[in-house]
Design a protein around this nucleic acid. Structure first.
Lengths: 196, 196
DNA sequence: GTCTATATTGCGATAGAC
DNA sequence: GTCTATCGCAATATAGAC
């Protein structure tokens, strides 16, 4: 096991720090000290703090690629919804920082918002909407369903679940072991609502 | 129309600035210049930048008080859900900054998170959950519904709608004129899901 | 690639005159 | 309450030795 080079060490140390405190909440000094590199290394490798942030954000957003699998497949709409729920849960379990970068960019956008964040969000929404559109036209989903609002409801329930988790301690006992249950609960709501 | 005093001017100028750029993204100098006050006024009135932020956050979070109206009333669960949706929409329309403070605290918590944010979130979730619990025990909601996950699904769809709005330009044409439609679409999903 | 040393600017906060 | 002036320190970034 060789010691990772300084570039990798910077990326590894910076990823959780930016996630927790945002671009403006982290100084190059604290980055360098956490990564155990000289502070000039950040400029050397990434051209400055913002360059480092942009590189990390770009890498984080590759976690959204699973949406393309959903787009390609020809499956009934409810199965695609389930794929989306499972893919989203998996994405956040595998990478606990992605949601923070994502939401942080939505509320306090950096220059990366236009180049990386918005195009990705639009892509995800577009795929989900196409699924719903097709489901309606094929008679699988009810024809009074609004494709746009339905998409946002679907994306909202699962994303908000992870977003609010840190403030919901004691409300849900969130852990990977209940993911299957979570998918089933949300799918039940999509299938038949909440009414008896 | 008299000129507001310096304290009010600081609050008025700082509210949108913290909302857009976060606590760490705003300097006292930029605050003072936007509010057209001397920079020493921030320490004088609020004891520093963090004190100012805390005061604004506290005031913003008063926007969640409508949840107590819902808690007090004795209404069928679906009517309470509709009250919650309408109240949430109204809250974000009346105060376009609240969601940013809210979500920003969830992803990049400041010292206010423990004192203000988490207690408020817990309060909202508790009220919604109590509504669902009662709805189930009275046979109005289906007995297989998970109260916790149902709560998060409900809160998620409407909160995410506003959260993602800046990145969803062109996807939904969001404006107050369609709020009634939005409530109806979400209520339809809660009533019967999305399946035909 | 990695370091030291430093340039330069900006930061938050406050002392003290008025 | 409001101002000027300034303190002390942190910020990002880079020049230049090795």
């Amino acid at each position: 096991m060789v010691r990772p080079d300084s570039r990798s060490r910077i990326l590894a140390a910076a990823t959780p720090m930016f996630a927790r405190r945002g671009l403006n909440g982290v100084s190059v000094r604290s980055l360098a000290s956490a990564a155990k590199v000289n502070l000039s290394m950040i400029s050397y490798h990434f051209g400055g703090k913002e360059g480092l942030y942009a590189e990390i954000l770009k890498k984080q957003f590759e976690g959204f690629r699973y949406i393309d699998d959903i787009a390609k497949r020809d499956l009934p709409p409810m199965e695609k919804c389930e794929m989306y729920l499972r893919g989203t849960i998996r994405r956040y379990r595998e990478n606990p920082y992605l949601l923070r970068y994502y939401v942080s960019e939505l509320t306090n956008p950096t220059p990366c918002f236009k180049t990386i964040v918005r195009p990705t969000v639009q892509r995800v929404l577009k795929v989900l909407r196409a699924t719903i559109d097709k489901g309606i036209s094929r008679g699988r989903l009810r024809k009074t369903l609004s494709p746009a609002d339905g998409t946002l409801a679907l994306a909202g329930m699962i994303n908000f679940y992870f977003l609010v988790a840190p403030a919901a301690r004691g409300f849900v006992d969130d852990h990977p072991g209940r993911d299957e249950e979570l998918v089933n609960h949300f799918m039940d709501i999509l299938r038949g609502g909440i009414v008896a």
